[in-house]
């Protein structure tokens, strides 16, 4: 075996590469006033990281700039649309969200704790589940498509009410088995390329993979606005894409597997500010 040769090879590149490689030191302050925790000590249950970083630190200055002022943030159009929908009657029951709920600000803090276990059913639920439950059971309206603009706009609007608050999902008690399942998935090397989330986002964050600067794969910014797709992207859509890119058979958006993975990935970001709607390349 040639481990020595390899170390030598690594040493040669170490110099030119480090400049690009690290997450940058910029500070994320939104609208000149909301100071975001975008770098912090890793929670204890994240064994292989000392420090956790928002994906914002791995983006170019141009992309970063779009997120620091809501007037420049292209996602805000979708959030504004969701605010209108919040007041709009839909479904056979003749109700809008606002018919039953106080102003959307009343959801402050909810996003930071999602996903969570429904105490009645014992099932793990994510924000999309809570919203669709109201739509189908309480409004007698059609369920929204998981990654559709209506749904992700509403998820972002509700999430925005918690912007700046540190993520703090529960991983113990009834959440524990789901968290274990998600963790197992995170370290599973899927597909013909045999790559786990950890291979890219834990072992190689800061490195370039082809044209992409690898982040820690955090979800505190989701739904995020992707410039490439010009729309809000759901967490499950991102997971699906990352697994597909390992030449694997992926899981479905809204599957129990992705709910569990979402809980685990969210918990890796416990302590980072809720950032939605973040802007990514």
């Amino acid at each position: 075996m040639k481990f020595k040769a390899l170390t030598a090879a690594v040493a040669i590149v170490a110099l030119p590469v480090t400049v690009l490689a690290d997450p940058d030191d910029d500070k994320l302050i939104i609208n000149g006033e909301i100071e975001m925790i975008s770098v912090t000590k890793a929670p204890e249950h994240v064994e292989n990281l000392d420090t956790i970083y928002s994906g914002w630190h791995f983006r170019t200055d141009e992309t970063q700039a779009l997120q620091i002022d809501d007037f420049d943030n292209p996602a805000m159009i979708f959030v504004d649309q969701a605010a209108d929908i919040y007041e709009t009657v839909d479904g056979a029951a003749g109700k809008s969200c606002a018919s039953c709920h106080d102003a959307v600000e009343s959801f402050a803090g909810l996003h930071a704790q999602m996903p969570k276990v429904d105490p009645e059913t014992g099932k793990l639920v994510v924000m999309e589940d809570l919203i669709n439950e109201c739509r189908t059971e309480r409004m007698e309206a059609d369920a929204w498509k998981w990654s559709g603009a209506d749904m992700q706009g509403m998820v972002a609007l509700i999430g925005l009410q918690s912007r700046g608050m540190p993520m703090n999902v529960a991983i113990d008690g009834p959440a524990a088995p789901y968290w274990e399942q998600g963790k197992e998935m995170y370290y599973t090397r899927y597909g013909q390329l045999e790559l786990s989330c950890a291979n890219c986002h834990e072992e190689n964050y800061g490195n370039m993979i082809r044209a992409d600067h690898l982040s820690q794969g955090m979800i505190n910014g989701f739904p995020t606005y992707r410039l490439k797709q010009a729309k809000l992207i759901s967490r499950h859509n991102r997971f699906r894409g990352c697994i597909r890119d390992t030449r694997a058979e992926t899981f479905a958006e809204g599957s129990d597997e992705f709910r569990a993975l979402e809980l685990y990935v969210a918990s890796r970001g416990n302590g980072l500010s809720v950032e939605t709607p973040a802007v990514r390349q």
Partner: peptide, 12 residues
């Protein structure tokens, strides 16, 4: 492999 796909389609 674990859940190998049909190239990059995301399908089985």
């Amino acid at each position: 492999f674990i859940r190998p796909g049909d190239a990059y389609t995301g399908k089985a």
